[in-house]
């Protein structure tokens, strides 16, 4: 230990004990302060959002400026569409990367891939939006649901990859060895024993990243843009819940503010529920390892 530790021992016991209790208090207070925003947000979202959640919120289109009422039906459907498109890209790519990292994750390529996945995960999401804007929107010359789905999909890849790698690592090595000892080729062991055995947790991880993606706003602003009507075509701008919340929140109308809170309530409940489910499903598995 350090030399100055001796100083501690010579100090009076009572003083040290007082410092100890004070620091206990400080740490507990720090934790409580950190959690104040959580409870405040949850409280406000519930109090402001719940009254505005009615049938028309789920079933109606937004009303023109100045008219009360209307809903976010198209935005809800839009978010579902976008997240579906995103999953088409992000889920297979992410799981395949996770498989590569967990089953073949040695050597130089693997460390490069790990580095890239880490970097991709930490790039601000608005940069992904700009990238898709430069890649797709500038070429197609219009905002589209496809562009929005692409942006969300790229965002999903690293999170899905990381969570599936973690899950695949939970499969004990002797399971793989048992399969190989039976003479099965490694690809069969990987796909039909390892992946199949751990698919539940992997699906949970995927759903968690889907929940995260459905709350993303920044990458959608200039890819999927927004739309006040129902949208059936994927090459047209499409509205989404987060973008609609943003638009309504910065507007000057009280009725729109109420709807923004209601939309926020839906997003928060979705994310909370997914996190809670993940906790419950994964907790026993993680403890065993």
């Amino acid at each position: 230990m350090k030399r100055h530790f001796a100083d501690y021992l010579f100090r009076s016991y009572r003083k040290r004990k007082a410092v100890n209790s004070t620091m206990y208090l400080v740490l507990i207070v720090a934790t409580l302060i950190a959690l104040v925003p959580l409870f405040s947000i949850f409280g406000y979202v519930l109090a402001q959002g719940a009254p505005a959640l009615n049938k028309s919120f789920f079933l109606e289109l937004p009303k023109p400026v100045g008219e009360a009422g209307g809903g976010m039906a198209n935005a809800i459907l839009g978010t579902v569409t976008l997240v579906f498109l995103a999953s088409l890209l992000g889920v297979p790519w992410g799981i395949a990367t996770g498989l590569y990292l967990s089953e073949y994750g040695r050597g130089r390529l693997a460390s490069v891939v790990r580095f890239c996945a880490d970097m991709l995960a930490s790039i601000p999401s608005i940069i992904i939006g700009l990238f898709v804007y430069a890649l797709v929107v500038m070429t197609m010359k219009r905002f589209s649901a496809l562009a929005g789905g692409l942006a969300l999909g790229i965002l999903m890849i690293p999170t899905v990859a990381r969570s599936s790698e973690e899950m695949l690592k939970l499969v004990p090595q002797h399971i793989r060895e048992a399969g190989l000892a039976l003479g099965l080729p490694r690809w069969k062991v990987t796909l039909m024993i390892v992946l199949k055995g751990i698919r539940g947790p992997i699906v949970t991880g995927v759903m968690l990243s889907v929940a995260r993606a459905s709350g993303e706003t920044a990458p959608l602003l200039f890819t999927a843009f927004n739309n006040r009507f129902w949208q059936g075509r994927l090459d047209q701008p499409i509205s989404s819940l987060p973008v609609q919340i943003y638009t309504y929140a910065i507007s000057p109308y009280d009725d729109w503010h109420r709807q923004a809170w209601a939309g926020a309530l839906i997003l928060v409940l979705l994310v909370f529920a997914m996190n809670l489910i993940t906790r419950v499903v994964l907790a026993p598995k993680a403890r065993k390892s």
């Binding site: 934790t31 950190a34 959690l35 925003p37 959580l38 405040s40 947000i41 406000y44 979202v45 402001q48 929940a211 995260r212 709350g215 993303e216 706003t217 920044a218 987060p242 919340i245 943003y246 929140a249 910065i250 503010h257 923004a260 809170w261 926020a264 997003l267 928060v268 994310v271 909370f272 996190n275 906790r279």
Partner: peptide, 24 residues
């Protein structure tokens, strides 16, 4: 429990933080 709550703080969408920021 507290660890879970702190994690929840990370899960709240950014736009909801913004909404809370504007009005609270």
């Amino acid at each position: 429990v507290f660890g879970f709550l702190v994690e929840m703080l990370a899960a709240i969408p950014s736009v909801v933080y913004g909404l809370w920021g504007i009005f609270v």
